[in-house]
């Protein structure tokens, strides 16, 4: 899953609803916005459904900087 997709999809959903709510759109355009909104809402929900927290830890890298490697906390 693309990590920015919820935020993007949600922003687009809000935008779609707003443009649907504003002004007197031609019916065809309104129906197109509606379809788009339905798809975006489904995309938002599936982002939320599919998400699983990822864990990483920063370790020094060879070039003197830092890189993130997968990590699991030890049970305390």
């Amino acid at each position: 899953m693309e990590e920015t997709s919820f935020e993007q999809a949600f922003a687009q959903l809000e935008e779609t609803v707003q443009s649907l709510e504003s002004g007197n759109l031609p019916l065809e355009e309104a129906m197109a916005l509606f379809e788009r909104g339905v798809k975006l809402a489904a995309a938002c929900n599936s982002c939320l459904d599919a998400a699983e927290l990822r864990l990483k830890q920063l370790v020094p890298s060879l070039d003197g900087g830092f890189e993130a490697e997968p990590w699991q906390p030890k049970d305390t």
């Binding site: 949600f10 809000e14 649907l20 909104g37 809402a41 938002c44 929900n45 939320l48």
Partner: peptide, 22 residues
Amino acid sequence: VQELRSQVRAQQLRLWQRTAEL
């Protein structure tokens, strides 16, 4: 995420309502 779900639902509701109105 629960809050987000309800926000998505709220947007969906507005979408349907507005389309029905139109």
